[in-house]
Write a protein that binds this DNA or RNA. Sequence first.
DNA 1: TTAATTAGCTTGCATTATGCAAGTCAATTT
DNA 2: AAATTGACTTGCATAATGCAAGCTAATTAA
Lengths: 164, 164
Amino acid sequence: MQKKTFSDIDCAIAQTLEQIGDGWTLLILRNAFHRMRHFDQFQENLGIPTNTLSNRLKKLTDSGILERRACAHDRRAYEYRLTDKGLDLYPIIVTLFQWGERWYSRPNGPRMELKEKATGLPIPEVKVRNQDGNPLSARDVQVIIGPGGGEDATNLVKFQKKTA
Amino acid sequence: MQKKTFSDIDCAIAQTLEQIGDGWTLLILRNAFHRMRHFDQFQENLGIPTNTLSNRLKKLTDSGILERRACAHDRRAYEYRLTDKGLDLYPIIVTLFQWGERWYSRPNGPRMELKEKATGLPIPEVKVRNQDGNPLSARDVQVIIGPGGGEDATNLVKFQKKTA
DNA sequence: TTAATTAGCTTGCATTATGCAAGTCAATTT
DNA sequence: AAATTGACTTGCATAATGCAAGCTAATTAA
């Protein structure tokens, strides 16, 4: 039995999923966006087993999504912080959140609300939009093979044409 | 050993991850957005074990993300199609794709490109934006507890304030 | 009109990964 | 000096995964 790796699927989504395509990993990242930084904080808040947490944090630091740095005030302690690469995951985290709110809402309303710090105005839903800013559905968009597209990409795109 | 369920974490992201927080599941969905519909097509394209595929498709249909319907022309065959709930995952799929392209790009350029069907113009990157359409980073956004927020949400939001 | 082939699965088994509890170890606190 | 804390490891039972093979009804080929 081989370990599954999505890395050899030559598709950007597969690459992403190889790094963060796992429930615990994404919950850790969610907490990191809430400025959580310490091992025991993640453990307590998520109820994740410590060995699993350790593995996930290691993988996230290895892939440059989190950075592990020693704390100045306590030499036992380490901080896990989002790198630029990690911060760049923000749209993914927000879209996961918004879909969950849309389809698994609480009767009283949203569990959390996002506001722009500068103005206090609510953040509109993140959508795929055209250049004019109008929202598009999946069926308003066509996928074409790009210059870096290999066999896997070609297969999928071809596939789409079959039925389009 | 109990099965892990994220459902009891009262957070929209955890709810989402309970349904689609898994690598194979997201790859199946990616393919579904490319209009892939049949068991053997998923199997062949992804190289996923058939029992795993079967489980994932069952879960996705149970949660109303895919719909399993008999085919008219062949009574052995079934089609798995995205429901409205499934189509609504589009921003998640696109953000996963775009992050992968940004951080795991091919030397020649993007593997795929998205264009608006109506105009042929490229789709701009999906970002979190304010009401004026200007992109925001995670640190430009503040999270406040909403009316449906319970203990879990409160803990996380409080947490954020600690360091903010 | 019998014989392949196909679509969509199940089943069995070996191997990994996960969840849980307990333990380690150095650095703080009490 | 003793207790506690932060960040982990280790061991073990259980669950999930990967792989191959088989199964069944429907369709196509000979």
